[in-house]
Design a protein around this nucleic acid. Structure first.
Lengths: 142, 142
DNA sequence: TTTTTTAAGGACAATTATGTCTTTAAATAA
DNA sequence: TTATTTAAAGACATAATTGTCCTTAAAAAA
């Protein structure tokens, strides 16, 4: 469904969000440990997310990655930033010209699934998910 | 969402189904042209589908690929045969132990989307889709 | 039987995704 | 100011996916 980079990226952002709520600013090493991902690859992904404005970063001692306290970030923002929006928009059979006027054989069937996915990702905020994490209701590794 | 191999595979099977309904048995060259896919790669995918019992094949002159007239094949069968069932079952964040007792942060949200996808793929038959193709209501390329 | 047509199979090549390492630049603290 | 900590950047390595090519085996037609 998502690329590995996107899986790690979502996990990383959720951890960063949860830490930010506690006024912490984890560095790559801490993030990689918390979400059980390869550290240098995680660094790459965090860089990309920071360049894309999805997360904020600060260099130097006690630096690291963080989110604004009132961030309105959604799952959809993270996914689009790493994997692009093909999963929300593209034809599931890869036809470049697929549309309702010129539909692929599964156009209608996938429309519903894709819209469901899109709506869910747009309506799920990172802060919501971080709350559940903090309460120990959900988990980021193992 | 799906691998390229799976996209080509679904398109190939739908073309084969539509041709089978007209008692034709297209060869790889005809399939690749009809669905606009690279011929040798398409051959590989058709081989795999034939080995998996998804489609039938016949060598020699006037040979090719075909389906039984009363095939009960669904989209889910094709996807599972090429990409496996991770898309229907696996954790969207890649956690190996994700479950309702030990859920990842997006477990509940994705449950619905994934179930929707699964149900749709299981309930959509290849013959249904081939009918629409034959009537010119849907398209396999461009 | 021979030739032709086709799928099957496997080796190979190219591309993309995943993952690592090293150097540089920024920021803080001493 | 200097040393230390950190992200940024880019080169590099590995693995997986995508794609090609060539040989073999099967089947039908001539």
């Amino acid at each position: 469904m998502f690329s590995k980079a996107c899986e790690y990226g979502i996990r990383a952002v959720l951890f960063i969000a949860e830490q930010s709520q506690q006024d912490k600013r984890p560095n790559v090493n801490e993030i990689a440990k918390a979400v059980d991902s390869p550290e240098p690859f995680t660094a790459k992904i965090c860089q990309k997310l920071a360049r894309g404005g999805i997360i904020l970063s600060k260099k130097g001692p006690s630096g690291g990655f963080y989110l604004e306290k009132d961030s309105k970030l959604t799952l959809a923002d993270i996914v689009a930033s790493i994997d692009g929006d093909a999963i929300f928009r593209g034809c599931s059979l890869g036809l470049p010209e697929c549309s309702s006027e010129y539909p692929c054989p599964v156009h209608d069937q996938f429309q519903d699934v894709r819209n469901g996915l899109k709506r869910m990702c747009e309506n799920t905020t990172v802060l919501q998910l971080a709350d559940k994490l903090r309460k120990g209701e959900t988990f980021l590794k193992l």
